[in-house]
Amino acid sequence: MNRIDQTFARLREGDSRALIAYLTAGDPHPDRTAELALALERGGADILELGVPFSDPMADGPVIQKASERALRAGTTLEKVIEIIREIRRSSELPVVVFSYLNPVLRYGFEAFAAKIAEAGADGALLTDLNIEAAEEYLEAMRARDLATVFLGAQTSTDERLRQVAQASTGFLYLVSTAGVTGMRETISDAAIPLLERARKATDLPLAIGFGLSRREHIEAVAPYAEGAIVGSAIMRVVEQYGESPELGAKLEELARELKSGLKVPQPATGGVA
């Protein structure tokens, strides 16, 4: 059982859902990312989504766009991201899912990618613009190393499509809470909970929901229906605000603690209908 499965198994025994924290690797600087990841872990993050910055982040809103630009300017490459994973692994068992657009991984090669991230201690990956139809070679490379392959489900996905996406997924299923790109929103979308309910019927995998969740109250609202909540832009906004400041780590830890407190739910997630 890899660290992701262990994490969800452990949480099932207790009284909280997973806080899945997204961090753009290399922002403000590749040397600092491991330290920031550990700060998020201290605050209560259960899983880290480590973002590989990309020049043309088609699914991202302004906050993560700017984070990617800063990270690229600081010289972040997939090779550096792999070093960062190694550095995190030296002192932590926090599960790490590499989050990337397809092209940097394609350029690196699926085989080399899977081999290197596995060896560095990553637990899985999600490639935003790799749909299941085109994923065969990737799946083979990842499966061979027991790495989780997380795919996305969306409000436009039919029940059949959700089943297919779940079938290709291991670790958890990532559900996109809202139409549009990543970013902070005032309220959670009306589409979020119906999607979680449909996904629940489509798979036994843990469900994680993301896009647009930035506040404790958003997370509280979805927590009864999911095993995990993914927060990205709210985290990267803090990184943007505190940049090189020595306070950055403490601020991230504080944010993670606040978010995690919204995830305490006594009973297991059942979709709220059972």
């Binding site: 397809l102 613009d129 996305l152 969306a154 409000q155 436009t156 996905s157 499509r161 996406v165």
Partner: peptide, 10 residues
């Protein structure tokens, strides 16, 4: 082919 955010597949 088609390499898009999942929400655009439909």
């Amino acid at each position: 082919g088609r390499y898009v955010p999942e929400i655009l597949v439909a």
